[in-house]
């Protein structure tokens, strides 16, 4: 079983003790294979730091980050990432952006083009395959970023508030699209958001994070059957879970504001 496992990790930024910022403290988290895991928490609580640990983009000051049995020390194609700000390559067309990862490992041109074209189609951008990122809207850019990450067939997909910059209509369309793709691909997903509705709509399990220094303060299995569409967001079960998350987050936001 290749699960993602954070064991008692702490992350501190800054060299001197006086100015040090503790982003995460003694955090434990296990994400089983194929789970759609969502971390929700107030802004600045250390969500990105947590995701970066799994991505291998930063190192824990204390504790261990594991993928299966191997220690995560650097980024790798088995852990794909969809950043909040899209980070597309402006000099490449949509199709070439999606091919980027495949071109790195010398996948043959024919296979590369076919795989990329499939994912471009899966995110509904076939008509825009020869467009450059500057010609796309925010939602379209984020779809390219998702297709680009999926094209290299990662085992885990890491998403850092990917829809945070989108307007709410576009965001709900993107959420449904993501679920549709995930239903087919069944990858482990670690999804980060500060939006409770988004967390509950998408997740198998929602992990609620405390204000800084971040820890997991609540683990909520979301027993809402799939496939889900937007109508579930008004169901009684959904609202009950939402109230539970809101009440624990409410205190945390209070704390966060008092800190800063």
């Amino acid at each position: 079983m290749t699960e993602v496992r954070l064991e008692n990790v702490s992350v501190r930024f800054g060299e001197s003790k006086a100015t040090q910022i503790t982003a995460l403290e003694n955090l434990d988290l296990v994400i089983p294979e194929q789970q759609f895991a969502v971390i929700v928490g107030p802004s600045g609580c250390g969500k990105s730091s947590c995701l970066d640990l799994v991505a291998g983009l930063n190192r824990a000051t204390e504790g261990k980050t594991l993928f299966g049995d191997t220690l995560i020390e650097k980024p790798g194609p088995e852990r794909g990432m969809v950043p909040q700000n899209y980070s597309l390559f402006p000099w490449l067309t949509v199709q070439k952006n999606v091919e980027f990862g495949l071109a790195l490992n010398n996948t043959s041109k024919a296979e590369r083009e076919e795989r990329a074209a499939n994912y471009v189609e899966a995110v509904g951008l076939t008509k825009f395959r020869d467009s450059y990122p500057s010609q796309l809207s925010g939602g379209m850019k984020q779809r390219v970023a998702i297709a680009r990450a999926l094209a290299v067939d990662p085992e885990v997909l890491l998403m850092d508030e990917p829809f945070g910059a989108l307007d709410s209509q576009t965001r709900s369309v993107m959420q449904e699209l993501l679920l549709k793709i995930w239903q087919k691909e069944r990858k482990t997903v670690l999804f980060i958001t500060h939006d409770i509705d988004e967390a509950l709509f998408l997740g198998d399990v929602v992990y609620v994070m405390s204000a800084r220094p971040g820890r997991i303060i609540d683990t909520i299995p979301v027993n809402i059957k799939r496939p889900r569409d937007y109508t579930v967001t008004t169901s009684a079960g959904f609202v009950k879970l939402k109230r539970r998350i809101m009440s624990s987050l409410h205190d945390e936001v209070d704390k966060a504001l008092a800190i800063s």
Partner: peptide
């Protein structure tokens, strides 16, 4: 932007490929 490098690393880029691509 460093984000461009980071996302490339997660797509499997080596350091050489980061420079050239």
């Amino acid at each position: 932007h460093a984000d461009l490098f980071n996302v490339s690393y997660t797509l499997g880029a080596t350091r050489g490929q980061i420079v050239s691509r």
